[in-house]
Amino acid sequence: MTITDIQAASQKLRDNKLFELFVVAIIILSALLIGAKTYPIPQAVMQAVTWLDVGITVIFLFEIVVRFIAEPNKRRFFHNGWNVFDTLVVVVSLVPIEDSEMALVGRLVRIFRVLRMVSIIPELRTLLNSLLRALPQLGYVLLLMFIIFYIYAAVGATFFASINPDLWGDISISLLTLFRVMTFEDWTDVMYETMGTYPLSWIYYLTFIFLTAFAFLNMVIGIVVNVLEDEHARERAEQEEAEGKITLEDLQAEIRELKQLIREQQKNNTP
Rank of each mutant, 00 (worst) to 15 (best):
Y198T: 01
P199I: 05
L200G: 04
L200S: 06
L200H: 04
L200M: 08
S201T: 14
I203P: 08
I203K: 06
Y204R: 13
L206G: 02
T207Y: 10
T207I: 11
F208W: 01
F208A: 00
L211K: 09
T212W: 05
T212E: 07
T212I: 12
F214N: 10
F214V: 12
F214I: 15
F216I: 11
L217K: 11
L217N: 12
N218V: 01
M219W: 12
M219K: 07
V220M: 15
V220T: 15
G222F: 06
G222S: 08
I223N: 02
I223D: 02
V225I: 10
V225R: 10
N226D: 15
N226S: 15
L228S: 06
L228H: 03
D230S: 07
D230K: 13
E231G: 03
E231C: 07
E231Q: 14
H232P: 00
H232T: 03
A233K: 06
R234W: 05
R234T: 04
E235Q: 12
E235V: 08
R236C: 03
A242V: 00
A242Q: 01
E243D: 08
E243Y: 02
G244T: 00
I246D: 04
I246A: 13
T247H: 06
T247R: 08
T247N: 11
T247M: 09
E249P: 05
E249T: 10
D250P: 03
D250S: 11
L251E: 01
L251K: 01
L251P: 00
Q252N: 07
Q252S: 02
Q252C: 02
Q252T: 05
A253F: 07
A253L: 08
A253Y: 05
I255M: 10
I255L: 11
R256N: 08
R256W: 10
E257Y: 14
L258P: 11
L258V: 15
L258G: 14
L258D: 15
K259F: 04
Q260E: 11
L261F: 11
I262P: 08
I262L: 15
I262Y: 12
I262D: 14
R263P: 07
R263D: 14
R263N: 14
Q265G: 12
K267T: 13
K267L: 14
N268T: 12
N268H: 14
